[in-house]
Design a protein around this nucleic acid. Sequence first.
DNA 1: ATTATTACGTA
DNA 2: CGTACGTAATAATG
Length: 965
Amino acid sequence: MALSATSLKPAIADRRLLVVDGHSLAFRAYFALPVENFTTSDGVATNAVWGFASMLSRVILDEHPTHIAVAFDVKGGTFRNQLLPQYKGTRDAAPEDLLAQLPLIQDMLKALGVTYIEKPGFEGDDVIATLATMGEDAGFDTLVLSGDRDAFQLIDDKITVLYPGHHFKDLKHMTPEAVEAKYKVPPQRYPDLAALRGETADNIPGVPGVGDGFAAKWINQFGSLDAIIEHADEIGGKKGEALRENLDQVRLNRKVNALVRDLDLDTEVHDLVFAGPDLSAVDKLFAQLEFGPRTKQRLLKAFPGGEHTTDEPVEDAEECTIENPTIDAIASRADLDGWISEHLISTVAERTMSIGHPMPIGHAKPAEQAADADVSALDDPLQSVQGFWTLHAEGTLRHGESKPTSLTILAPDHHAAVLAPSLARECHESISGLLATRGGFCAVHGYKEQIHLLRALGITPVHPWFDTQLAGYLVESDYHPDSLDAAVAHFLDVQVQAEDGQSSAQGELLLDDTESQRDAGDLDPNLTARRAACVAALTRRLVPMMVQRHQYELMHTIELPVSEILAGMELRGAAVDRARLIDMRDRFAAEAREAQEQAWDAANKRINLQSPKQLQAVLFDDMKLRGTRKTKSGGYTTDASALQDMAIRNVNNERASMFLVSLLRFRETNKLKQIVQSLLDEVNEHDGRIHTTFEQTVAATGRLSSVAPNLQNIPNRNVAGREIRGAFVPGDGYVSLMSCDYSQVELRIMAHCSGDEALIEAFRSGADFHRYVASLVYGIPMDEITGDQRSHVKAMSYGLAYGLSTYGLAQQLKISPAEADVLKDKYFATFGKVHEYLETLVSQAREKGYTETMFGRRRYFPGLRSTNRRVRDAAERGALNAPIQGTAADIMKLAMIKADRALRDAGVRSRIILQIHDELVLEIAGGEADRVSELVSRAMEDAVRLDVPLDVSTGIGDDWQLAAH
DNA sequence: ATTATTACGTA
DNA sequence: CGTACGTAATAATG
């Protein structure tokens, strides 16, 4: 058809509510799609789930609802069954196959972020009628997706019913006009017509011989069903007679098909806002349902967070079969050497990865000339896909004492050698040699972990050619699979070949060792080899994606070298003064207890101060204090800033301020106690050091993160907390700690990227940066800038990269929004190009679907196209921030690579032990302080050449706190 | 026994 | 109603 119904619609409405009849849609889907085509390997039918998702997705794409709800019937009768025992008799005979899918559909809705509602004693139809009415009252345009014609009575100017036509997929927009055209009666009269005609689908008899036509004729003649009944005697002929005989039935029908529009649903229309799917939950469910990636892409493209795959053509995940490798028996080093020469040396060309001099790439200006950079690693990645081998070690990771359980080498000809740890250790020279000559064609999953396991086997790791974990992260930085299985399920349309030759899409079961096997440490070599085959399959899938998205160089120049450095840092750990930590913990604990007692006294109750719920009861019920902001679950927040506000407002209320102050003190000291305790829990008993794990594929912007414990959030803002840094000390053989950090990297990046002359000059001048900027913004000399002016400008500068709103700025500075607005205007008037740059970031992200750092690292932002304002605004702030935060992260990674290299070239023992985003902490050996300080700050300053200098400040001391500057 | 919510530490 | 993280506790689910 030339004009679709949607193209005639006015611009997307602000508020559109979609109400879905869950059962009716599930029934329609079930009967429209052949079960045979939608069954999992265990024989579970999924046709209704698929059809439901597909239909919902289409409607969302076409109609752009801002709010969605799905209504379901609840088991057990409704008031209608009491009126009419045979009511929906035909439907209760629903096949088992379908009933089993209803919970799956509900799980899916949950994962997709769509609200569903059930109301015992009533039908989904009544819920729908109520929701539609609520929506209408709230000023929404409302759509009702239902295959039940009873819904037609709801239709008016604001409520449209989407009714599936003969083909399940084509939906008719039933507007008042459409109903009138089809049935010759207005929507309000439709139930009258249905009562006369009956409803076979619901097992409701009408007047024999009376169809739509006669029913409509009577209605138009007399006005309504009541009038018809009143004048039943005046209707002649056979049909009049039939009517008179069935008056009771008709009255009953009319009573039953009237929908209840005023149920108490315990929900507000605004609660139904469509926020978007939980992608990891969707993945999990879709894996269970055995929906492949293409299905997922199709079904998800309507959902915020799911559509980005349509921004660029996605290479078809060719239906890949993961072949079971042929496992060759290896009993000795001689066996392995023979196997290697037969299956690897002859098929894999000699090549090593030399990534000693990582190059800034993309549009960044290289810090030094590239003449000596070996980029052979980067030529023709696609060709390498043909003849590569896979190395896959498995085991448990505990830094310092990692326990490998197996090592698999998979050759390009699908022959595999699976070695037990003892044998692998025996063969370490052969394997190291293989890596040394053929590492340039080696694929792994998670190089950093592999390094730990290989080292534990005595094998010397070298940069592999490809890392599927890093690749997955670079290609889709918002998705982090937490296992190899999850990565396979996400990136591949898996078809794992089982032993008996049957193929199955259930990757999970076939890949996982059973728990008993794991416990016994007795792993099935077949499964181990199969997992190696998965790495190979992932490689084949991800290489072209990496090339297409220009992420391949990033992996080689930045991520792989960083993996190696991080592995070293994790292995080393950070030494701590355990006695000092214990002392601190006890002090913080004592102070927390004291604060707790005071709070209890003030409250006259020994409540749990760590329970927001109990706090709310005391603060807002007992003490009748006025709350500030609300939490998303409705209650007033009890966070620190709210407590402070309340303390200020209630200085005269002695009990209240006593309670508030004590509570704040309890929160603070208890938090510190917790942090110290978490550090103590992680001290390695063998070396007394804390070995954190740096996550390299978690933060979507390209930053690292730190877990078990998180050493990137050790307190630094107030004195009490900063003390904890004092417990980090140089270990045996080292004399001090050094801290080197970048000052205002993100602002410098903005200055460089925007080309704003004023901001660039502010950095080049070398003056007190914030004072200098304030002087420009306020147009007064630097020495006349007040403390307030400086701090306001400083907050503004820092807020820039977060997409700070004037409201937020006002709140932070405790000034009025109007004043904040003035500040913002003045700031952007002074630094116009910065403003321009930030807007460009967002608009380019909108066009391309992703943002890019200076070094080409991408992050996709599907939410920019969301019709939900909150989602869209959040995406815009993300798109503003990601390239800036990400570029800073890239720069620090380059600096780490340079610094690490410089330290090793210089032959010093001092080494990097921590990275905290813009800071490096080093452990300094005796007599090396000056040299190392020079080397590291040079490496950091020279990581990349910008139009502004990169300033690094360093400090040294007996502990981390004293190393601050 | 898992999942969500709240709060709070860092850059 | 500021981005990016990780952790711990309570409360709410199964």
